[in-house]
């Protein structure tokens, strides 16, 4: 390709490149705040330099390990299930022959994705209530199980959070996998049929292998979010009874940094999260290359 032919394309990229630099790279200078006792009216240049004090504050809290651990467990399980559930569902849906039914189901499971957690928080509070909530009523009348306090019991809270998150978002993931499925070369199936492979064998040896690369991409991208356990969800669902198992880094940042206006501490925690996430992205990217021969660059 020579530049004479392609220059309009470069010009077209320019505005978005500028916006990217302006809004994604320039603000990175704000990382300085993590090492300062930042006061908005003093700005970056005049705020007191405190070195690693903010990081010290973060780890000096008696519950900081608990909070980090909660974050890791919740988000790791979310990542795994948010990969496995849509993967399986897409496979099943792909076997459906009636196009109308397929589309209908696809839309139906996609819908919860558009609801905000503020709304779902209120809905879940009612649905999961021990006091005549829909789920507990079914559990007790069909299975004779005594009411479970899903949102207020340390043993159940993480389960509830993860399952409700998967329920909300697996429809979105399904669409990605269905798109991958439609790209599988039909001649592969024809050849398999000629060779006498059953539906199950075809799935095992054609469908799944051709979906793996996209699954690796989705998984790799998701790993960058390992320290984001979902602020909006937890914030709307948690309560003092489940702090022990439900308090995550983001809710903790919200309470200390935003409510108290402690920008320095908030930035420090954000930076800590970013560094960990970046390391994880590096690792997963290497692994994706080694295992699935997948690379973005």
């Amino acid at each position: 390709m020579n530049i004479k032919k392609t220059w309009p394309l470069h010009v077209m990229v320019l505005p978005s490149l500028l916006l990217l630099i302006l809004f994604s790279y320039v603000p990175m200078a704000g990382i300085v705040m993590a090492f300062q006792n930042f006061k908005p009216w003093l700005g970056f240049t005049h705020s007191e330099w405190v070195g690693l004090d903010n990081f010290h504050t973060l780890f000096a809290r008696q519950d900081s390990m608990e909070v980090i651990w909660n974050t890791l467990i919740i988000s790791a399980l979310k990542i795994v299930l948010n990969l496995a559930a849509p993967f399986t569902f897409a496979l099943l849906l792909n076997e459906v022959r009636k196009a109308f039914f397929k589309r209908f189901v696809q839309t139906l499971v996609y819908l919860p994705h558009f609801l905000s957690w503020v709304i779902l928080g209120g809905i879940l509070l009612d649905v999961l209530s021990t006091d005549g909530g829909f789920v507990n009523r079914i559990l007790s009348s069909w299975f004779g199980i005594s009411p479970i306090f899903f949102l207020g019991d340390n043993d159940w809270f993480r389960f509830t959070v993860i399952l409700s998150d998967v329920w909300k978002d697996f429809g979105f993931g399904t669409i990605v996998f269905l798109a991958a499925l439609s790209n599988v070369n039909p001649s592969l199936y024809e050849a398999a049929e000629v060779d006498g492979a059953s539906r199950w064998k075809q799935t095992l040896h054609i469908t799944i292998p051709s979906m793996l690369p996209i699954a690796v991409v989705v998984g790799t991208l998701a790993l960058g979010n390992i320290l984001n356990a979902g602020f909006d969800q937890i914030f709307n669902l948690y309560n003092p009874l489940v702090y022990q198992k439900g308090d995550i880094i983001d809710t903790f940042v919200y309470r200390t940094a935003i409510l108290n206006g402690e920008m320095g501490l908030g930035t420090a925690i954000g930076l800590f999260k970013s560094v960990i996430s970046m390391i994880l992205i590096f690792i997963s990217y290497r692994m994706a290359y080694k295992l699935a021969n997948y690379r973005i660059f």
Partner: peptide
């Protein structure tokens, strides 16, 4: 308060709620 109050509030809420709930 800036560094400690959130933790103190947290253990307070936790303890009081768990006492009320009999845990």
């Amino acid at each position: 308060m800036k560094t400690k109050m959130d933790y103190l509030n947290k253990i307070e809420n936790q303890t009081f709620n768990e006492i009320i709930y009999g845990k």
